[in-house]
Design a protein around this nucleic acid. Structure first.
Lengths: 216, 216
DNA sequence: TAGATTGTTAATCGATTAACAATC
DNA sequence: TAGATTGTTAATCGATTAACAATC
């Protein structure tokens, strides 16, 4: 598997390919051409071929792509071919929602700890985990192999906790707090921001523009 | 306010500007130059000026931008200058998390109904709403003015419910289910997808590439 | 072999950045 | 007026699409 420098535009799209391939597998489809996949996903066949070729020839001329092996290959690129431990910091509803999300487990993500600073939440069972006091987080990270942390706490606390996480070996932060953590850490710490309120604003913005266009 | 055709790349960035302007207001900053803002946000000053100019001259030569008025203007573009009602379909933890999220209210989004098909959840209070049975959704939409619906239900049910929503006047769907609803509806229905599992895969993908680069 | 479909190069399109004249 | 900083045009860069030769 040759990896050229892959643009983030391609990385953005990979999980979506993966999802469609998963659906194809469920349907029992064995092979698919870029043209057929392009119809389903409504992107150009050209783009599909370009994207997949970044990783070396997954396809075969005159045949197309084998769904199962393409699925496996993309899974490897996404790092889904191994179990990955994860902690969740912030045991509120959002943290609980993430912990309960069964599908993550199917992808190899395993929540091994949930932490909160609120004593009312500490001790509560969420799926297979009991919420622990956040003061125990550092020790926990030292004694467990975890690279990924989800951060579902308020903005004000996020930076401090993020530093603690990184200082204790966390390599990737799935950040739901409204701070741009990426500006605070060196490049080799992976940050994926999910800013829900910004997403809602985009929705509202598009809706607003619709109204505009309808008016004028 | 002149509105040229605005690229989605710009719309993507607007909420982030809005957030930074909000922070500046909290700090009591009255004016800011594109250069200074560019430092804070770590984007180019050029991009900021280009972006803001899509909407007509918010700035003033030799002075910069007035934080308060720029904040207000962007707020208008984002449609935050008026109250917007919203229903949540799916009363699980994720739906509850969204309903509880206070900050949305600050932005004018008001959750006026939560629905679920699970009888165990029906009747439960979440913030100011009591979860209702999903069978009552259509009637509710007919008798209330709502344009926005958040969809936090499993993939399999999403399409059917989305059709019901659209048939009953919903104009914008904030979609957390793992389906591309945008492929199913005409262009004037606004869809904003939040695919959390894909977000986590991107995180994992970047982490995976880090490891690669470290190795070889 | 003929047909299908990829891999890959070249052309186009759009978005970002640089530069500078306009103007507060 | 002089200095600062925008608005805006032009240049660059990157990503998407089109086209077609390679090959299964």
């Amino acid at each position: 598997m040759i990896q050229k420098e892959i643009s983030s535009a391609v990385i953005e799209r990979l999980p979506r390919y993966y999802r469609y391939l998963d659906e194809l597998l469920e349907e029992g489809v064995e092979r698919i051409s870029s043209a057929e996949l392009s119809r389903r996903m409504s992107v150009t066949a050209s783009q599909i071929r370009q994207d997949l070729n970044h990783f070396g020839g997954f396809g075969q001329q005159g045949y197309g792509y084998n769904v199962q092996s393409l699925y496996n290959e993309i899974g490897k690129i996404l790092g889904l071919d191994r179990a990955q431990n994860m902690v969740i910091v912030g045991g509120g509803r959002l943290g609980q929602a993430l912990a309960n999300y069964v599908r993550f487990e199917k992808r190899g993500f395993r929540v091994i700890g949930i932490f909160d600073r609120n004593p009312n939440l500490v001790g509560m069972w969420v799926r297979q985990c009991q919420i622990q006091y956040v003061g125990q987080l550092a020790d926990f990270l030292k004694s467990h192999e975890v690279e990924i942390a989800a951060l579902t706490i308020p903005r004000d606390e996020a930076e401090e906790v993020a530093r603690l996480l990184v200082d204790n070996g966390i390599r990737a932060i799935w950040n739901f707090a409204h701070v741009d953590l990426n500006l605070l850490f060196p490049e080799d710490i992976v940050i994926e921001n999910v800013h829900l309120s910004e997403s809602l604003m985009r929705l509202s913005c598009k809706l607003n523009r619709e109204r505009w266009q309808a008016d004028g």
